[in-house]
Design a protein around this nucleic acid. Structure first.
Lengths: 112, 112
DNA sequence: AGCCTTGTTCAAGATTCATTGAACAATTGA
DNA sequence: TCAATTGTTCAATGAATCTTGAACAAGGCT
């Protein structure tokens, strides 16, 4: 039961995706989702990036843009990158973003 | 004489670049710069995308983000993609964006 | 039943963004 | 010099964004 609205894969818009990623907090979330071993994480695992309310807001943005999938499980939300959908729609895009971030702005202090 | 402020190549920030591209008008400008034969275009060549003032605003955004280079030549500004700088800093990123746009939202009516 | 955890929603505020029109600056050309 | 072209700057407006705290909802646990 995907209670929360997700855009279908073929309807993900590039400008929308780029706008969603044009924010340090959300970019950090994507970085953690991409580099972490687990393919799904909960909101509370991002709490070091901001307040509970702020996270809910940013995660909704990422979901609405088509970047992440959110699956309710108990009181938790399992959040995962829509890797397959994104790769099919925008080949190479996600990989380049992730690679950039690995070298990029926030190098140390990754408590995965 | 680069009268206008451009960020040095190694100081271009990913989040800033993504935010600059998260706008249909600016994305269209980058698309035209990337797909056109000419490596430099003037502001007036983008007038079909918006008002003169708006274009000036959006082009400043792209310049400040490090996406384009603006070189004054007479009363004109020669605008070009910073392909080399971007490829070095974010390998594969620009190519994936351009490829996406080719398939993407505004298919027909490209008066190159 | 209560209580805790996890996360959303609502309302408010400050900030930034995008668009517009008028006025201005600089170069080109008659 | 006068006029046209090219583009910037300024001020104002409305919209969107981000952040915060309080209140709420839904499950899990004892």
């Amino acid at each position: 039961m995907t209670s929360l609205p997700h855009p279908p894969a073929d309807q993900i818009e590039l400008a929308h995706v780029l706008a969603a990623l044009g924010d340090e907090t959300r970019l950090a979330i994507i970085g953690l989702l991409a580099n972490g071993e687990q393919d799904a994480m909960t909101c509370s695992q991002f709490l070091h990036l901001g307040s509970k309310t702020g996270l809910s807001y940013h995660l909704a943005k990422l979901r609405e843009a088509g970047l992440v999938n959110v699956r309710p499980e108990g009181t938790k939300r399992m959040i995962s990158l829509r890797r397959t959908d994104l790769d099919r729609r925008f080949p190479g895009f996600l990989d380049s973003i992730i690679a950039c971030r690995a070298v990029g702005p926030k190098p140390g202090k990754a408590q995965d």
